[in-house]
Design a protein around this nucleic acid. Structure first.
Lengths: 340, 340
DNA sequence: CTGAAAGCGCTTACAG
DNA sequence: CTGAAAGCGCTTACAG
């Protein structure tokens, strides 16, 4: 482990000069010395000590990826493939910019703040924010810039990257309407709990409205989670007198549950029931028929979050910004045309 | 940001005494002073600066999770849900032990070594090692302890956590044999490329042997990857004169591809073809019929890796150790009994 | 049990 | 363009 000091000694210059070379302050070093010092650095494979740099400068070059623990199970949310993808992309993008990423799973705001000051974190990205109260408090108290994914509060300045959920609900519904469907179900977690779900539902209502339809309460399946929830919805649909000809599920796993249960009860997908999901997760292409679903561009999302954070780190003016990304339909085989 | 020095001043003691309190060296502090100092720490919400600690002690308390980038795409391997789960579990376990985790995706050994010395990493865990040459070089050159998951070389000391793949292949095959199957296919990536696949195949051969059967080359589908590969295998099976009555796939996604294609070609699963996968990944339960598969306990695996690493960090004697975890069959609906 | 000194490896701020 | 000084916030090693 050779140090900057030793390099300075070997080159016969001051530590400052070596430091300037390492930090590419070429204006402060003569080309000859720079070259000579570079050679020595190369020769000994010198690698700067980030802890020392962090201590003396005020920048740690560490970004925290904040991972709320799941309520009940306290499992890591990296169990969710979406989160894994986001973290993976974020790490790669940050690495290109010479930032390092630390993971920080947490239950309380306190834990995050402690973590942040432990390492003098330069900035944080919060993924899959679950509880609004915590997210709110975090954006208020975070010492360094914080980018929140998928959540925004209008009552305080914050950095956020959003997805156009209303549009997602709208285009999914429109897609079905254009194919002749008129009785369209909408299944998801409790609408009131989540603004994401609420927005998607609003898009659904808007599309129906354009066709002179109003939402049928019987077709709003609220309060169903993941695959088991989807299976329950499937059971209900199978048992209905006037079945919907199509359902939109706010999650691929819910859609998968619906499909699985309906197939079990001998309904044909998509002939008897068309299904659209959300997210284009891995299972969407693995099940048969392949699931038609509303996709968000996760890579783009990660890039936006990283850019926004980096801007905020270098320019403290930028503490209130928001980007909303679009969504698109991925067509596979789970939707058929419907002629009443 | 209050510092240790300021706390010492306020308490009227030396920095050393405060340091001893913070580090729980109770033997070196009188109870009264300790209590008083604790109160001050609490009052100001003092949080130690890890960079400073890392610099002066030799321990950074940082563990690196090493993520090889995928060959072709250079995508983050966190796209793989398995990797996400591992990383999530590792982070939680390490956090309990007061370690911090940094992510480090890489293509070259050089990148990892630089990263390690940048932060004076205490130890590393390598997930999903792809290229043997890189893994080998890494275990040789890593400055601090390195735990390798799913790989072991007999020619050098190393820390590794393995899964009993031979047993996995064996029990899957046995499971089918016991249900009357005699023509059993085996589908996976190129057997020669990966010792994991080779071991599973060996288990398959051993189980067949116990029933007086020898492997039929026509039923060894080697060189197929992920879902598209599975679909190809499905196509082949559908077109065969003497179809197998069951197939074992070395990955759930391959199994899903086989099922999807066979269903498309009007074969019934499991009546016409039984399928067993490996991994018990999310899709296994989302498809219909639910996929019977060989599961490894990822939580346990992560815990073993973390324990092994922590032991090696605190005791430099422990630089050669290996644990092999067992596997089990998760029964769902993709296997039927077979009567020739 | 307690403390004064020195140092970890770097950068900032200031002089020249 | 170059450098000497001071300091970032902690711990180690040594004395008492």
């Amino acid at each position: 482990m050779i140090t900057l000091k030793e390099i300075a000694a070997e080159a016969g210059v001051s530590m400052m000069t070596v430091s300037n070379v390492i930090n590419h302050n070429w204006a402060r070093v003569s080309p000859e010395k720079a070259e000579q010092i570079l050679a020595i650095i190369d020769k000994y494979h010198y690698v700067p000590n980030m802890a020392a740099r962090s201590l003396s400068s005020k920048a740690s070059h560490i970004v925290a990826v904040l991972l709320p623990l799941w309520y009940e199970t306290a499992d890591s949310l990296l169990l969710d493939p979406y989160a894994g993808q986001m973290v993976g992309m974020i790490e790669m993008l940050l690495r290109e910019k010479n930032y390092y990423v630390m993971l920080c799973s947490f239950k309380t705001v306190e834990q995050v703040l402690t973590f942040q000051s432990n390492w003098q974190i330069d900035g944080s990205i919060l993924i899959l924010p679950h509880e609004d109260a915590i997210t709110h408090e975090l954006t208020e108290k975070s010492a360094s810039p914080l980018v929140v994914i998928d959540r925004r509060f209008e009552d305080l300045p914050m950095l956020s990257v959003l997805v156009d959920d209303e549009k997602g609900g709208y285009i999914a519904t429109k897609y079905l309407l254009e194919r002749g469907h008129r009785r369209i179900g909408f299944a998801g977690p409790n609408f009131k709990d989540s603004s994401v779900i609420q927005s998607r539902y609003n898009g659904y209502v808007r599309a129906l409205g354009e066709y002179g339809l109003s939402p049928d309460p019987e077709l709003a399946f609220s309060g169903y989670y993941h695959q088991p929830g989807g299976e329950e919805v499937g059971k209900i649909i199978v048992g209905m007198e006037r079945r919907p000809s199509a359902v939109i599920a706010t999650e691929d796993s819910i859609a998968c549950g619906i499909i699985k249960m309906c197939q079990k009860k001998s309904m044909r997908i998509p002939e008897d029931l068309s299904v659209i999901g959300f997210d284009d997760s891995l299972p969407a292409r693995l099940i048969s028929p392949g699931l038609t679903t509303v996709r968000q561009d996760i890579q783009h999302k990660a890039a936006c979050a990283v850019n926004m954070l980096l801007n905020a780190i270098s320019d403290s003016e930028k503490r209130d910004d928001s980007v909303t990304l679009s969504v698109e339909i991925v067509e596979r085989e789970s939707v058929a045309s419907w002629a009443e």
